[in-house]
Amino acid sequence: MRQAAEDATESALPEELVALLTGHLGVKADAGGFCGRTTFESLGLDSLSLMELVVAAEEEYGIVLPENALDLRPSSTLGEAARAFEHAR
């Protein structure tokens, strides 16, 4: 039962993150393509794309992402990015 709760939490990505991935970075994925375990690398994003994501998030939504958002790598997951969005100021 605990695994099911973790999966549900991981699949709940912030709308802003999904909008930036699809709109700003042009990532195409089916409905199940975006989950907490999906890596940026599997979506075809590199470290430059991740920096673009951070800058776009700050410009589009007027938020300041925490320092750990700058530590995101292509091997990082969308769940890790979602946690950074949750802690945005």
Rank of each mutant, 00 (worst) to 15 (best):
I63T: 02
S75G: 14
G33L: 08
L45D: 05
K28S: 14
L20D: 07
L25R: 06
H87Y: 15
A69K: 03
L50I: 12
I63V: 11
E86I: 14
S47F: 12
A31G: 11
T22C: 04
Q3G: 01
L70F: 13
C35W: 01
T9C: 01
P74G: 07
Q3N: 01
L48A: 14
A56W: 07
A57P: 00
C35L: 03
E15R: 10
L48Q: 15
A19C: 09
G62A: 08
A82C: 13
L78C: 14
L21F: 12
G26Y: 10
S47T: 10
A5E: 09
E59V: 00
A5R: 12
A57K: 05
M51F: 14
F85E: 05
L17Y: 06
L65Y: 11
R73S: 09
A88E: 05
A31H: 08
A4E: 04
T22D: 00
S49E: 12
G23W: 08
E67R: 15
P66K: 02
A29V: 05
L17M: 13
T9E: 00
N68T: 10
E15A: 06
G44F: 10
E15F: 05
G33P: 00
L45K: 05
E52W: 07
D71P: 00
F40K: 02
R89I: 07
E60Q: 11
T22N: 11
S47L: 01
E10H: 09
I63R: 04
K28P: 00
L72E: 07
E15I: 00
G33F: 02
R37M: 01
Y61W: 06
L17Q: 03
S42G: 02
P74R: 07
G33V: 05
L45W: 09
S49C: 14
F40H: 11
R37D: 01
L48Y: 13
E80G: 07
D46A: 07
L53H: 14
E80T: 13
P14V: 07
S75H: 11
V18N: 07
L17H: 03
S75V: 08
R83T: 11
L78D: 04
L70N: 12
G44M: 02
G33M: 01
T77D: 04
H87T: 09
L17G: 10
A82F: 08
D30R: 06
V27F: 02
T38C: 07
L20N: 06
V18Y: 03
T9Q: 08
E67L: 13
A88Q: 09
A19W: 04
P14E: 13
R73I: 04
A19M: 13
E6P: 01
A56V: 14
L43E: 14
S11F: 02
T38H: 12
T39G: 10
L20H: 08
A8C: 02
R89K: 13
L78A: 15
L70M: 15
S11C: 13
E59M: 03
L20A: 09
F40P: 01
A12K: 13
G32S: 13
L13P: 00
A81C: 15
V64S: 14
S11W: 06
R2G: 06
D7F: 00
E15G: 01
L72P: 00
A81E: 10
G33K: 02
P66S: 11
T77Q: 05
M51Y: 15
A19V: 02
A84Q: 13
R37K: 03
G62K: 01
T77K: 00
L21S: 04
S75M: 08
M51K: 13
